[in-house]
Computed example of a mutant assay.
Amino acid sequence: MGVRQWIEGWPVYRQLTGSDPLGRGSAVTSARTRELEARTAKADSVVRSVCPYCAVGCGQKVYVRDGQVTQIEGDPDSPISRGRLCPKGSASKQLVTSHTRVTTVLYRRPRGRDWEHLPLDKAMDMVADRVIETRRRTWQQDFEGRRVRRTMGIASLGGATLDNEENYLMKKLYSAMGAIQIENQARI
């Protein structure tokens, strides 16, 4: 690289001799910078979502390419966060793409000593079977022996990190299962 070529490549020279005297645009943009493109430019689709970390419910845009999440950013159309995310929300891509993400369920059998890995589908079937059995065993009856469509064998204590919509859906789920002991940590 010659001296003249080096001087012309220097941002200050481009700023003083070009059309960008304040150095806010083309004068300070290198050839390498001009070659770069945003990680979101080649996304196949953009899915709107909500940040999973706290009860604020900040809007997110999830960029997907070839079935893989490539970027997660704040959603500027969200009335809650207006495109901003906290550091945890900004790093939420790691929840779905990290190589350390847990994809199985740890289960310890009754009176067992060791944990075993179960596929999520099998664990969900086990939970469903137990809910059905608990309802069957603890379904209440009135004084005349008629079913009253409720059970005291199932209860729910929701966490304060759930947003209003999640708590609403949890209330509907547990009410549909016949539970009447439904509470939330935020109320306690």
Rank of each mutant, 00 (worst) to 15 (best):
E37A: 15
A38H: 09
T40G: 08
T40N: 11
A41V: 12
A41G: 07
A41Q: 12
A41M: 12
K42A: 15
A43R: 13
D44I: 04
D44Y: 11
V46K: 10
V46M: 03
V46D: 00
V47D: 02
V47S: 04
V47A: 05
R48A: 08
V50C: 12
V50Q: 08
V50L: 11
P52E: 11
Y53H: 15
Y53E: 01
C54V: 04
A55W: 01
A55V: 01
G57F: 00
C58E: 07
C58H: 10
G59V: 06
Q60Y: 01
Q60I: 00
K61T: 06
K61N: 12
V62C: 06
Y63C: 04
R65E: 00
R65H: 03
D66S: 14
D66M: 08
G67Y: 03
Q68S: 14
Q68W: 06
Q68D: 08
V69I: 12
T70V: 07
E73A: 06
E73N: 04
G74C: 01
D75L: 07
P76S: 08
D77P: 00
P79R: 03
I80E: 09
R82Q: 14
G83I: 07
R84F: 04
C86W: 01
C86R: 09
P87W: 03
P87D: 01
P87V: 08
K88A: 00
S90T: 13
A91M: 06
A91R: 13
S92M: 06
K93M: 11
L95S: 11
T97S: 14
S98W: 01
S98F: 02
S98T: 04
S98G: 07
H99R: 12
H99A: 15
T103H: 08
T103S: 15
T103C: 11
V105G: 02
V105L: 10
L106I: 08
R108N: 02
R108L: 03
R109W: 09
R109V: 15
R109L: 13
R111P: 00
G112P: 00
R113F: 02
E116Y: 05
H117F: 10
L118F: 11
L118R: 10
L118N: 07
P119S: 15
L120M: 15
D121K: 15
D121A: 15
K122P: 00
K122S: 13
K122H: 13
A123D: 10
A123K: 03
M124N: 06
D125E: 14
D125Q: 15
A128G: 03
D129I: 08
D129T: 06
D129A: 15
R130S: 10
R130K: 10
R130E: 11
V131F: 13
I132L: 14
E133H: 13
T134A: 11
T134F: 03
R135C: 05
R135T: 04
R136T: 05
R136M: 06
T138V: 05
W139N: 08
W139S: 10
Q140D: 06
Q141L: 09
D142L: 02
E144R: 15
G145E: 02
G145N: 01
R146D: 00
R147S: 10
V148A: 07
V148P: 02
R150V: 01
R150S: 08
T151V: 02
T151C: 09
T151H: 06
M152D: 13
M152Y: 13
G153T: 05
G153S: 05
A155Q: 09
A155G: 13
A155K: 14
S156Y: 15
L157A: 14
L157W: 13
